[in-house]
Design a protein around this nucleic acid. Sequence first.
DNA 1: GTGAAAGCGCTAACAA
DNA 2: TTGTTAGCGCTTTCAC
Lengths: 385, 385
Amino acid sequence: MNHGNWPTCWPPLIVVENPWELFSPAPVSLHYDGWVPRRSSSKTAGKLPDIRTVAAVAKVSIATVSRTINGSSLVSDRLKKRVWQAIKQLNYLPNTHARTLVSGRSRLFGIIVENITNPFFPELIRSFEEIAVAHGYEILVSSSNSDAATLASCARRMLERKVDGVAVMTFGEEEPVLDQLVHRGIPIVLAEFKLEDPKASTIVLDYATGIHAAIRHLVSLGHRAIAFLAGPHSLHSAITRENDFRTAIAAAGLPIRKEWVIECDHTLKGGVAGYEQLRKLRNCPSAIVCSNDMTAIGVLRAAYMAGQRVPQDLSVVGLDDVDFAEYTLPPLTTIRLSRADLARAAFEALRQQAEDPASPRIKREFLVSTSLVVRGSTAPPRADG
Amino acid sequence: MNHGNWPTCWPPLIVVENPWELFSPAPVSLHYDGWVPRRSSSKTAGKLPDIRTVAAVAKVSIATVSRTINGSSLVSDRLKKRVWQAIKQLNYLPNTHARTLVSGRSRLFGIIVENITNPFFPELIRSFEEIAVAHGYEILVSSSNSDAATLASCARRMLERKVDGVAVMTFGEEEPVLDQLVHRGIPIVLAEFKLEDPKASTIVLDYATGIHAAIRHLVSLGHRAIAFLAGPHSLHSAITRENDFRTAIAAAGLPIRKEWVIECDHTLKGGVAGYEQLRKLRNCPSAIVCSNDMTAIGVLRAAYMAGQRVPQDLSVVGLDDVDFAEYTLPPLTTIRLSRADLARAAFEALRQQAEDPASPRIKREFLVSTSLVVRGSTAPPRADG
DNA sequence: GTGAAAGCGCTAACAA
DNA sequence: TTGTTAGCGCTTTCAC
């Protein structure tokens, strides 16, 4: 099979001028003249056209049809044209399951996300889907909802569907599925978790750059009491973010108080809870950096309910830069983690492994960086703060 | 194939106590004693176990393995047990593509959404996935991004993957794909669009109830100048919502000014633009009802930037009640459209058609209602308003 | 109850 | 270049 030539649109633009005509509902009139169906015609009647039907109409062998579809160069232009005409006329669509069965490749990539209702992930999925479709792949999406059993079930289903690779975008909860996936020799990409397996790639997320920039920004504004609402410690990524925060604070020569670092859960609710815990403190910080945007938005909400104004009374910084961040009140200052970059890296990692596993120069590690986006939720602290 | 018995977890709980043990990475030691592989052993070596491997280990025929897997009652308990043991031992997973190829059913449902980055849809997808997985189905997600070509491509890919049905959740842009889907005899469900085809079902959305409640709420608060930020007129649902708004306003005995109904595009940006257009008016309305929550959140943002306070200076009502609505500033009063109900209806419609297409009492129409959720974005208008 | 065997629609190896 | 043919892994008759 010619993997490099899998047509992205159907049929490929080169051959047929307007591929979307294919989908016209016009009744198809077949010209089988002289062709005798291999099986009883009563069985064939009313069925969708298959490769044999196309071959019969185009008066070629099924191998030629297959070669044409797969962009093999071994077909003469004359036959190629006839085949595409027949395909068009019959409104034929190849059966992916059959192709997968014989070729051993499904052109399906799985993507498992932590929680699809966190806007970070739909944006990631959208980018991933766009890239995949552009390369002739389909995607299977699953949301693990941070539950080990669900995650395991996602993985099993993907295995049954014979995906060519899985992007595990759970940011640190992946252990339970790794074994099965790796054991079956399926290419995987992980975010932030290195695995000593030839089929596993890693996307290293450089949070440090963005977090350091955020701290510098806050310090230059005059803040000295900066809190951190961390993500759940079950997530590698949450721990990395917290560590980067600590390093940045230390680099700025600032103290870290134990009670200023609170473990939340990356949800809106968690942000509210974290804020309330912070408010109880005698020495309340003047700025809060959050492990993700959902937490930050929760803080915005809680501060509003408590009558504290952002940014006058309190500065808030998020992390992710979800589309929404621009529309919060006030617009959220946040550390951007590009979904498009992440999706690109994940896809590239999988594609390499799936299409050229033997290549000696496979890239096993991808870097995605972060940067600070300053909006309206940060300002100098109050003089008496 | 026994469709009613497709196991939801693997292997079914009835037979094996802890199915997740299956995924243990423990090296599998095979006992092929006496069994001769059908093809050369060099080819079989290193390959994933298939149904023949299981049959050999369990010392039964592949037919028995197949029957066991599919929950056929024609297998004795003795053999059933042996088969499940072999499956467990080999860590065997059936190949979905092969099953689909021969059975003609993929146990795959497609779901096409308008725009996955609108939080309404991830929530819908999550519910749909949960229900589908619980019934042994897998889902294929696609986002049409309100683009006809993309939509057509989604549909074609789903057709190639031989989905058993498609939920077209684009709320009124579906025409381009309907033909192909219906033409191929695939069951489909549409939101709000009735199609005269035996394979098509419709989910009727009763916006009127929620919209009437919203208008009554606003009127009881004292509002008389109520604007509507509509969705794009290319969407059936947007038009329905607008009509229901007009009816509700008329029912309340209020006037509708032409300039108070503005066509937006259901995005955050659209809400901002709509608000700004409204602000230019001499007789500015004291309340704005929006065709969806994204628009309403955009309005909240624009009003904040313009220095208008919500709800003191302006009341805002959304529609959808996305998870976020509770966390906007102020919390958004909105008309709830339950994603869970919608997902349930969509799945049920597809399942019926897919599993029992001949049934005389197939339900072709499902109703999902709406209700008003009052939060903090509505209040009496200013005395001078 | 159980097994043997015929394909599902397609690709790839081999022939011509 | 083109065609013939053997399966991919499974379900499903049809025998026994």
